[in-house]
């Protein structure tokens, strides 16, 4: 696989760190080298939050992603902040129910997914993040960045959901499936 340098960004509370953790665990299950680095400043308290996730066949150098080849964005400030840093040819996945702006760049692949609305309509409040994860894994499937199967993703989700929230597992699965089909 080609090195995946992903950035998940949004408001604190939208689950961007969790989304990144699921992707990281999928890499771990596939025996890849991986790193997950969160922003941990005061922005965590309701401002913008993000995390860098690197997945590679080689040991990870800097875990800080400055030029992502995958950008998942859940709010407008993050789109404005990071869109110009995406590598040409990279993938951008946008929650289009919260961000009505269109990307002007023509050298990146943009997917507009109304994930917040889809979550609301399907009784999956708070799982907009996992809808975007579903779209992400669908978008890279079969590409040079493909590193895992749907089954691996499912195992990763199981790893990331603590036992006391086991009832959330099926909701997360449903969200991923909705995202993949969106």
């Amino acid at each position: 696989m080609k090195d995946l340098n992903m950035l998940f960004a949004g408001f604190g509370g939208q689950g961007v760190l969790f989304a990144g953790k699921v992707a990281a665990y999928a890499g771990l299950i596939e025996n890849k080298e991986i790193s997950w680095l969160p922003s941990y400043g005061p922005e965590m308290r309701g401002g913008t939050a993000n995390c860098s996730v690197c997945i590679s066949d080689q040991p990870i150098g800097s875990p800080l992603v400055t030029n992502p080849n995958v950008l998942v964005v859940m709010n407008l400030p993050s789109l404005d902040k990071f869109i110009d840093t995406v590598e040409p040819g990279g993938t951008v996945i946008i929650d289009s129910s919260l961000i009505d702006k269109k990307v002007e760049r023509t050298d990146v692949n943009v997917y507009y997914v109304p994930s917040s609305s889809l979550a609301e309509e399907n009784g999956l409040k708070g799982l907009s993040n996992m809808i975007l994860v579903g779209k992400l894994f669908k978008a890279i499937a079969g590409s040079d960045y493909d590193f895992c199967t749907g089954d691996t993703l499912d195992q990763a989700i199981q790893k990331c959901i603590p036992a006391r929230k086991a009832n959330m597992l099926d909701f997360n699965r449903k969200a991923v499936n909705i995202g993949a089909d969106a």
Binding site: A24, L28, I34, S35, W36, P38, Y40
Partner: peptide
């Protein structure tokens, strides 16, 4: 440092 403390790795 803060990067190593906050990051997750296997």
């Amino acid at each position: 440092d803060g990067m190593l403390g906050q990051m997750m790795e296997p």
